[in-house]
């Protein structure tokens, strides 16, 4: 069965790009969230196998969202998405429980690799 993915990003464009790449490679996108709070709600709703999490978002940032999701499900597999130059935040995210990180602009192969490795 295809692994399910929840995409979190505040820009519709990024969600669209990611969704495109992810679906083409045998994963199923079960939901899209536009901020941290939304992501927590959708996580509880869909219980996806994998989550991609942007860092800078309105309402609740990605790092806080990772912490909250980890509280709900300590086995959650979250991949943090960052821009260049967000090194300290990526480290925070990893410490909060993220399994891997992606750096924008995304490279399709990297996205798939991260998802596959995190799913293992």
């Amino acid at each position: 069965m295809a692994k399910t993915v929840l995409i979190t990003d505040d820009t519709a464009f990024m969600r669209m790009t990611l969704k495109n790449v992810i679906q083409k490679n045998g994963f199923e996108v079960v939901g899209e969230a536009a901020d941290g709070e939304d992501a927590i709600a959708k996580y509880q709703e869909f219980r996806p196998d994998l989550v991609t999490m942007d860092i800078t978002m309105p309402k609740m940032d990605g790092i806080t969202a990772i912490r909250e999701i980890m509280k709900i499900d300590s086995n959650a597999r979250i991949i943090v998405c960052s821009a260049m130059g967000q090194k300290p935040m990526v480290i925070d995210a990893l410490n909060a429980g993220a399994k891997d990180f992606l750096v924008k602009p995304f490279d399709a192969e990297r996205v798939i690799e991260a998802l596959q490795k995190a799913a293992n």
Binding site: S82, M84, K87, V90, I91, L94, D100, F101, V103
Partner: peptide, 13 residues
Amino acid sequence: TLLKSVRVYTIFQ
């Protein structure tokens, strides 16, 4: 590889 130091960090983790 981007953010090499962070990648090393994940390996350490």
